[in-house]
Every structure is written in C-alpha cells, then in structure tokens.
Design a protein around this nucleic acid. Structure first.
Length: 213
DNA sequence: CGAAGGATCGTCT
DNA sequence: GACGATCCTTCGT
C-alpha cells in the first residue's frame, strides 16, 4: 500500500479528478471498540475550480465554508448539502490557481462491507457507496475531518489502486451553472464501454468522450 | 423501474 | 429568505 503523495494534488484540478479514478479511498473507523478499515475503489469524480468555474463553491471567493479549498492541497473539504448530507472532496490545484477540489462521487466497495452496510442500513452492494453522500455515510465522514491532510498518517487517506481500462468524461451532475463543463469522470470497463452498466456510478449522464491509454 | 416530491439546515444575499 | 456538488419514499406503469 502506498499513500498518494502531496505532489499529485498540485496538478490541474480536472487532471487530478481523472487520475483519481482507480485509486482507493481508505478510512479507519472505531466502531463498538473495534478498529475497522473501510473503503473502496474510486469510480466517479468531479472537478470544481475557482473563479474559472461558476459551479464551484470557490467561485464567489473565500468564505467560512469554502476556505479549505483555498488552503493546502491534498486535504479533505467536507460540506453539508440539503441540510442532511455530507460530501467529501480533496483539495487539488496547480500552483497558478488559488482554489480547487475534487468531489468523490462513488466507490466500488471493497473493505469493511459489513460495517458500511450497518452505517448505510442496507446490504445492497450497489447502494452502499454509489453517491457522494452515500459514501460519506458508509465511511462515517462528517465535518469532523474537514481540513484533514489525506497525505499524512491520519484516519483517512487515498492510496494507489488499479489502472482503469478506460475513463468516461461527462458534464457534472446536480448543478445549475456551468452545466456544459466536462469535468465528471467515471470508470469504464474494457468489455462494456458504457458506464450505464457500471452499477456503482450515478446513472444520469451521457458520455462525452472516452479516455483510453 | 422511472418520475416526482419531501426532508432539513447551513450558507450566502 | 431562498437555495443547494443529495437521498429516500411513494406512486404510477
């Protein structure tokens, strides 16, 4: 296991979002006095920029909520959405930008499935971590880890994983501005280059292009 | 299985 | 005072 280093997050935010596909998000959790390792493979991400991106929280400038997006790269940016859900982001940007983050939208569940099932109140694998707030609930992610450095030895980190056969690129989900910006990325299977058949990602968009190696 | 609507509260105007 | 980088339930086919 190798934790993704800080330098990785010092690239263009959309590049980082694409390259995070196939890496693994891992979370250490104390549950009923036992320490568990939870997590899975990142299969869906979205990039959010600064003043170049009207859909981004950072578009309006620095505020109490979004200030993590302007601070160190490789850190967790957590926010509450719709009054009850949390979303998990990693701060990432090149040295010329002042803010940026990648929203982790879905995981392929691998570790601690029994605990994640309890936290999610479902045993359906396809419903455990197939959404930004679903995975936050499954990994017990909330404001407590806002700003946490994901490149240090903490209770949550991102590590190197697998190389995807292909990656699909689409516009982002659930936004009202900058609807056409193609900054959503999903893992594709070589045999079924149609992400609609990937049960772990949001099924709401058409692929704009397919990125192969 | 898809569409529609409610939940719920921090954040910004 | 309005809205949101969402999820879940209900209702109809």
């Amino acid at each position: 296991m190798k934790v993704v280093e800080k330098e990785f997050y010092e690239n263009d935010t959309d590049f980082v979002a694409k390259e995070l596909i196939g890496k693994k998000l891992t979370r250490i959790l104390e549950y009923e006095n036992i320490t568990y390792k939870l997590g899975g493979i990142i299969v869906e991400t979205e990039a959010y920029g600064h003043d170049d991106d009207s859909a981004s929280h950072a578009y309006i400038g620095i505020s109490n909520r979004n200030k993590i997006m302007f601070e160190k790269t490789g850190c967790a940016y957590i926010y509450l959405i719709y009054g009850k859900h949390y979303c998990f982001n990693v701060t990432a940007r090149n040295e010329k930008k002042k803010a940026g983050a990648v929203l982790i939208r879905a995981l392929y569940p691998e570790k601690g499935i029994d605990i994640m099932s309890k936290l999610r109140n479902t045993t359906e694998l396809e419903n455990l971590t197939s959404g930004p707030s679903k995975l936050s609930q499954a990994l017990c992610i909330n404001k407590d880890i806002n700003g946490m450095d994901l490149t240090q030895n903490n209770t949550i980190w991102i590590e190197y994983g697998i190389k995807p056969d292909a990656i699909g690129c689409t516009s982002r989900i659930g936004i009202s501005r900058a609807k056409e910006v193609p900054w959503r990325f999903v893992m594709l299977d070589k045999n079924q280059q149609n992400y609609l058949l990937n049960p772990y990602v949001s099924k709401r968009k058409d692929i704009i292009k397919i990125i192969e190696d």
